[in-house]
Amino acid sequence: MYQDFIDFARKTFSTEEFIPLHAPIFFGNEKKYLNECIDSTFVSSVGKFVDKFESDVAKFTGAKHAIATTNGTAALHIGLLMAGVTKEDEVITQPLTFIATCNAISYIGAHSIFIDVDKETLGLSAEKLEHFLINNTQIINGDCINKLTKRKIKAVVPMHTFGFATKIDDIVSVCNKFNITVVEDAAESLGSYYKGKHTGRYGLVGAFSFNGNKTITTGGGGMLITDDDLIAKKAKHITTTAKIPHKWEYEHDMIAYNYRLPNINAALGCAQMENLPRILDNKNKLAKKYIEFFKEKPINYLQGPKDTKPNYWLNAILLEDLEERNLFLEETNKKGVMTRPIWKLMNTLNMFKYAQTGNLENSQWFEQRVVNIPSSVIL
């Protein structure tokens, strides 16, 4: 079975060489725009490509505003600040996520609480979230207070895992009952939709990543999207060192961050955005090939759940158990076909081992079985 998959991967990607998990692809105006940027000398945080990249992402997602940042973690960090999260507050998220989700929470001095994922979406479970809030919190003076720690729960951060949209409308509905703000970790989901609406647009803000392994890349980069005018204005201000506009004076009115995406990275992003529809179509075709291949195999290929349109950023399969998972990983990587297990649960890492959790049975089940398989664009 493992050799069947290796042979299929080599045939699909038309190579006998090493097959990476997800390689960036450049087949448009990348070099042209980069040369334009260099010739202009505006290669840092000021330039036309930053503004255009923000406009392109806002238009594509349907968001009113987009604020470019140095990376997805920075976008999420600012998003949490916009949600009013402060030191010693608590933020609920899922244990089955990339470390950046929890790092951004920790940057503020806030504490993570881990609630299980949904079996259908691999994203935060609205049902388990509501169960936790009903049984462990109370509303005092409009704030959601954790009965155990006496701290405020200020935000919930669901993550759209591998580009599969979680049941975000249900999560928002639960949070509204408890006066909690939703900040979407949409880092992996550019081009993913839930009930016809792009991910990142259900919460107060949504954060995207344009790292080298994402659907499109700026080398390193991120984006915060929102429909809130005041939030957008403040986010732009706080990501540009809170500098008050002036022709020559250096005046700043608050502690802020140097998180503005450089123009040279944005130039790459503008070229990538022009080909995003083609990239997404290509990735959808690759997913269909995997669906057809695994249909007759004793391995479950993960597909988009009902009411979603995934971007299929990273294709994923479910092995029978931990032993099978490890055998598959060992054999494929030994033969030059890169595969990777899903992340270790955040609550098992030393930094978060004392965090409060709910019942994490689904997350633990996935941790032992999920493997990502090659997902690069094929032209």
Rank of each mutant, 00 (worst) to 15 (best):
M338P: 12
N213F: 12
G358R: 02
L133M: 07
E249M: 14
V370E: 09
A165S: 10
F60E: 07
P158S: 01
G109L: 04
K306E: 04
V43Y: 06
V50R: 06
G28Y: 07
D228M: 11
P245L: 08
N350Q: 14
A165G: 08
K285I: 12
D229S: 13
N265S: 10
P305L: 01
I78N: 03
I140Y: 07
H77M: 01
Y202Q: 05
H65K: 09
P20A: 09
A83S: 05
I231Q: 02
T241H: 12
T15F: 11
E188M: 14
L34V: 11
A23Q: 14
I78R: 01
K288G: 09
I115D: 06
K297I: 14
H65G: 05
S189R: 03
I67L: 03
D169H: 06
L322Q: 12
R340S: 14
P24A: 09
R325E: 02
E36F: 07
Q364C: 11
A100R: 02
I291S: 14
S375D: 05
L96E: 03
N311T: 09
Q368F: 07
I244P: 05
T69H: 06
C270H: 02
K243E: 13
I231W: 01
E331M: 12
C102A: 15
K128E: 02
T69I: 09
K334L: 14
S44Y: 13
S192Q: 10
R325H: 04
K167V: 00
V85W: 04
N213L: 13
L286M: 14
V337L: 15
L21M: 07
N103E: 09
K234F: 11
T101Q: 00
D56V: 06
F60C: 06
S125N: 01
Q138R: 14
V117F: 02
V156N: 04
T240C: 13
E331V: 14
I115M: 06
M159G: 11
I139T: 03
N35S: 11
R151Y: 08
D321H: 04
K119C: 08
V174Y: 01
A187L: 05
E324D: 13
L81G: 00
A83N: 01
L379Q: 15
P341F: 08
E88T: 10
N282G: 15
L21D: 02
L286S: 12
V337N: 07
K31V: 09
I238P: 00
L80T: 01
E324F: 03
G142N: 06
N146P: 08
F98C: 00
H22R: 15
M273N: 00
